[in-house]
Amino acid sequence: MGLALILALIVAPEDADQGISQRIFYIHVPIALTAYFCFGLGAWKALLLLWRGDERNDLESYVAIHQGTIFGALTLITGSIWARASWGVWWTWSSNQLVLFLVLFLFYCAYFMLRFSLEEGARRARSSAVYALFGVVLIPISFLAIRLADDFIHPTVFVREGPQMTGTMFATFCLSWAAVTLLAYVLYRVELAGKRLDADLRELREVLQ
C-alpha cells in the first residue's frame, strides 16, 4: 500500500506538457472523486442501518463521512490553488465543482453539528443516517442548480479547454486515482478500528469497575 502511494507521488508529476499547473490535476481530481465516493459510502451504510437496523453501520457511516469531509476540504484547498494557478484568483464562483464542494462542505459540517448535539443512542444513529441520505440526494440536485445558476450569475460562459489526455497522462491520472482511493481506504480502516477499539475499551472499563 505504501509502495503504491510512493510510486504514485513520484510517477504522477512526470509529464507537464500543458504547463506545470496541469500537475495539480493529478491530485485535485482524484481527491474530489474520492470525496464523492466517501459520501456515497456513508450514505450506503446509512441506508443499511435504516434498512437492517445493524448498529455497526452507524460508526461506519460516520467514519466514511468524516473521511469525505476531510477529502472535501482538501478538494477545496487544492481547487483554490488550481484556480490561482490557471486563472490568477484564489476563488472563482464560475467553477461549478468548487462551488458544489463548498455547499457539500457546509452540509457535512452541519452533519457533525447534528451528531454532536444529539444524545448517543439509536435515535442519534438514525437521525444521522437520514441526514447522510439527504446528502447524496443533495449532490446531484445542487450540481444541477449550480449549473443553472451560472446562467444568471455569469452570463458569459466560462470556457475551459477540455484537456486532451495522452496515454501517459491518463495512466498517471488512473494511478494517482487508485493511490488516493487506497489512501482513503486505509485511513478509513484505521479510523474505524480506532473508534471500535475506543468503544470496546469503554465497555471493558465498565465491566471491570
Partner: peptide, 22 residues
C-alpha cells in the same frame, strides 16, 4: 431532528441552509 438535540435553535438553520441552496 433539531428538536431532539441539545442546541435546537442554533442547529436548525445550519441543517436547513445548505439544503435550501438549490
Amino acid at each position: 431532528m433539531a428538536a431532539a438535540s441539545r442546541s435546537r435553535e442554533v442547529l436548525l438553520p445550519l441543517l436547513v441552509l445548505p439544503l435550501a441552496i438549490p
